[in-house]
Amino acid sequence: MTAALELRDLTVRYGYGSSAMTAVDSASLTLPEGGTVGLVGESGSGKSSLARAVIGLVRAASGRVVVAGDDLTNPIGARRRRLTGRVQMVFQDPYSSLNPRMTVGDAIFEAVRVHRAIGRTAGHAEVAHLMNRVGLESSAADRFPHQFSGGQRQRVAIARALAARPRVLIADEVTSALDVSVQANVLNLLKALQRELSLSYLVISHDLSVVNFMCERVAVMYLGRIVEAGMTDEVFSAPSHPYTRLLLDSVPELGSEPELSHSVAADIPDPRRPPPGCRFHTRCPVGPMADPERTRCRVDDPGWVAAGAERGAACHYPLA
């Protein structure tokens, strides 16, 4: 079966001259039809740049974005329309992603109109239907964004994304700016919508619990590279890559006894100047900083080591 979304060696670069940086470096990813893939990483990991490249907001320097078998990398014109009709995105900041000068009804209506020739009456009915679907009262359609709360604005953004009747929805840190109790509601909504509309999701988050709840597959990014990928349950219970292990250890788990970490106290390097060899070696708890014999990590950039059909990591000394 064709994957809903496939990324092949996607690379995104910014800037020029001395301030050039590679935000995404040869990322490959497969989102099966109806599935959910999570993308986790911290600041500088490149996950947002990846999302923007998929949706065509930034240029992919190289690589392919394949949507249901259709190559829609860097699309213009008709190809772009095809892309936006199939892949939609919900952004992180509910406060800035809606035009403050348009009512929410207009914003959703506009999105409906882009993808379908539809009259005003039918269009407004569709808007009401979409708003109800995301749990908002349709009577609120003529209010402005600033009159809503953060969680409600995210629902508006979801309704707008759904207006295009996409097959793939990218959720870029959609709950990071929301209160925890509101977050749970939005996540439940997203799950319900996935079932009802047979959507495929790419969930981007720095929060492992969110990714764990939403996604049966996960990919871990560090400084532009995907360093580990596989089924979430496997990756999170028995990670191969030391960075995944570090991430998991850092999540404050309720009820577990906290242990004083003995990890190297270095901070995330500047993404414009990634360390040579394996990018993680400056912070790796089992790398050359901890074990001087592992000099390979300073020099050789590890390639992908597959451990199964859908599992793999990029590490010279994978755990377990």
């Binding site: 065509g56 907001l57 809606l98 999105a111 993808h115 295009a164």
Partner: peptide, 17 residues
Amino acid sequence: SKDDIAAARAVGIGPLR
């Protein structure tokens, strides 16, 4: 650099609009 413009483009709204 405005987010609402990026979001609008992502929805597929044409450059003129």
